[in-house]
Design a protein around this nucleic acid. Sequence first.
DNA 1: ACAAAAGTGTTGCAAGTACACCCATGC
DNA 2: GCATGGGTGTACTTGCAACACTTTTGT
Lengths: 214, 214
Amino acid sequence: MYHYEHPRPAVTIDLAAFMLSAGELRVLLIRRDAEPFAGEWTLPGGFVHSEESLEAACGRVLSAKARLERVYLEQLYTFGAPGRDPRDRVISVAYYAILAADQRYSGPGQWHDAQALPKLGFDHAEILSTALTRLRAKLTYSDIGFEFLPEEFTLGEAQRAWETILGRPLDKRNFRKSLLEKGRVQATGKKSRGGAHPPAMIYKLGEDQAQLST
Amino acid sequence: MYHYEHPRPAVTIDLAAFMLSAGELRVLLIRRDAEPFAGEWTLPGGFVHSEESLEAACGRVLSAKARLERVYLEQLYTFGAPGRDPRDRVISVAYYAILAADQRYSGPGQWHDAQALPKLGFDHAEILSTALTRLRAKLTYSDIGFEFLPEEFTLGEAQRAWETILGRPLDKRNFRKSLLEKGRVQATGKKSRGGAHPPAMIYKLGEDQAQLST
DNA sequence: ACAAAAGTGTTGCAAGTACACCCATGC
DNA sequence: GCATGGGTGTACTTGCAACACTTTTGT
């Protein structure tokens, strides 16, 4: 059975990279200039090389021209329906990534508001929808939301991040309670300066949680 | 970029098939007779053919010599670390399956108690551990447990199934309450006969839930 | 008679949700 | 002085967990 040697499907990764910017949840898209789907937008992706891990392929696709640290990466689902790429049998292992807000990305893609997406080629609308659903679900039962924030943040910044991702307002007192209880965040002692409002305590992710974001 | 044509990884599916039998949660394993891992047990698996879907590949692997209906199938995770198969780069899309208790399987594998597993070859212990974790988690927030049962069942049978899967006893009144509220199950009006105990009402999955098991 | 499973309600706790006001700062 | 966000506590509701006895049947 191992020596079955019919044509092999191609294996790619497709990556839904999220970032918060200007009060929007944005996702990185690339405009195709070749058929099929020329002129439409797609998720960045690429072939999985023979000797690299799936995560390494994601990193390669994402940071071809970028200087990135603090990138959260999680496998989403594998899309392998015959015909999803009209040229060849392509099995795509989809991942989603979160770039912290203080990162700088400078690559070929453009960042689009995830709430107002253009038409996407291939089955990438389905991939992105799956990613958004997963992301929003994990926001409530894990610490994944902190991946969007710089290492130090105020509770107001955190609440605005959560609200942007979920697309709905949250109650301030309940939100603060949920972050402060059980040491999910810890105060640094420093205070923010420089808004038309009182200084805010600066927090960082709690020590126990720092490596348990998923 | 599309015309990249280095060697392609092989794509396989690996399948963790579960079934309840004799009060045990059992999983289908195959004893390898060739290196690597000769003599060890592995999950059934096989190559993904060029023009079949991933689910079709699972079905082919599972039912080569079996007559099966009512098979629940769900994608689990994709395992693609270089070196996980020492012979070649193999990317495995792992699925798990649930066979209803009234099915008959007659294939090359053997059913093992999932609580007392032998040593497994490749990374199949990790795959199976992931599958068990997923299965147990979904038991509490979805209707996946009914996939183990025949179409009609008593609440006692259901409770014994849940307890076997979770490996711990459940409170009878709470269990019954959770199934009966919100129409998760509906009474058929029939009653079981033939144990040293009172007849039990026979239920089936509620109509709204019948197609919403995940 | 006895063993075995069917059937049946209430209480306590924890988690989540709703809700309003005063304060410190920058302009 | 006014606009902006920082900071704070309580009450209600809901879901989950603990807990014991009576009844019907088969042997």
